[in-house]
Design a protein around this nucleic acid. Structure first.
Lengths: 133, 133
DNA sequence: CGGATTTACATGTATATGCAATTAATATTC
DNA sequence: GAATATTAATTGCATATACATGTAAATCCG
């Protein structure tokens, strides 16, 4: 009976809702949470090839390619060819760094919303459960 | 520096991974987990207008409209006008019921995979945390 | 009754996502 | 060194998703 609750559906719904919470928190920044997350990865890792970027973001290579194109059009990242001519290396621009700096406090506010809803311990438990999936 | 782990990103990644798990479990059924979820909603609720369906699925009305179009093309649901000529009522077809019946055991297998990964208690905790978001 | 408003969908536009197939460049092997 | 295989990225195709806008039908009100 409680069989009627699908973990996957529940998770997908929560992901949509939380995405909306973060997008609102970031509103005015000019990027959504998915894009902000990509900037954060680049900030932590430094320049990455598409393949490395896809691995870091747990996305398909074709997906990362398209997502990068969007934030490139926004001027937040720049592409250059690697020594291996097949590779395309992505790095943050000055503008990208600025958006990150302006975004961090907004993002932290969203993080706190989650911690308030779940409690710090609950939030940590959620993180662990999600990591296990 | 503290928390470099974004709840939203973690949740979105988990949603992608779990979606892939369920899609594999349902492979051969001809529908993915998102579509299967819509069939399940209809099965539980009976025929729904687009607006009711969107509410039940926690999706935008425009999104449900497009998603319904896909499963309609597959012959799994049928549309008819309500007495209120603006309304479009969605109901399961025989074919849709069959897919549901064939899919339930596959879906249950995926559910069990989650319970094995998290433990039954952990899975229940996850459900509660996600509901709170 | 008839115009104004609200409601229900559909469409336009844009991002996010993945798989399959393609293209270009590097590496391997004979 | 040339043929082959592998690798990196892109492109084609399809679904999922939301917001803003358009359209048609129903309802409200003067």
């Amino acid at each position: 009976m409680s069989e009627s609750l699908c973990f996957c559906t529940t998770l997908r719904e929560a992901a949509r809702r939380l995405t909306s919470v973060y997008d609102e928190a970031l509103s005015g920044l000019g990027v959504n949470v998915a894009q902000f997350g990509l900037l954060r990865i680049l900030d932590r890792s430094g320049p990455l090839t598409m393949t490395e970027f896809a691995t870091a973001a747990e996305l398909d290579r074709s997906t990362i390619g398209r997502n990068v194109r969007v934030i490139e059009r926004l001027g937040l990242v720049a592409l250059e060819a690697g020594k291996d001519r097949r590779e395309s290396v992505v790095s943050l621009t000055r503008s990208g760094h600025k958006v990150l700096a302006r975004g961090v406090p907004l993002w932290e506010k969203a993080q706190r919303i989650v911690e308030v809803k779940l409690g710090v311990a609950g939030a940590e438990n959620l993180r662990n459960a999600l990591r296990a999936l």
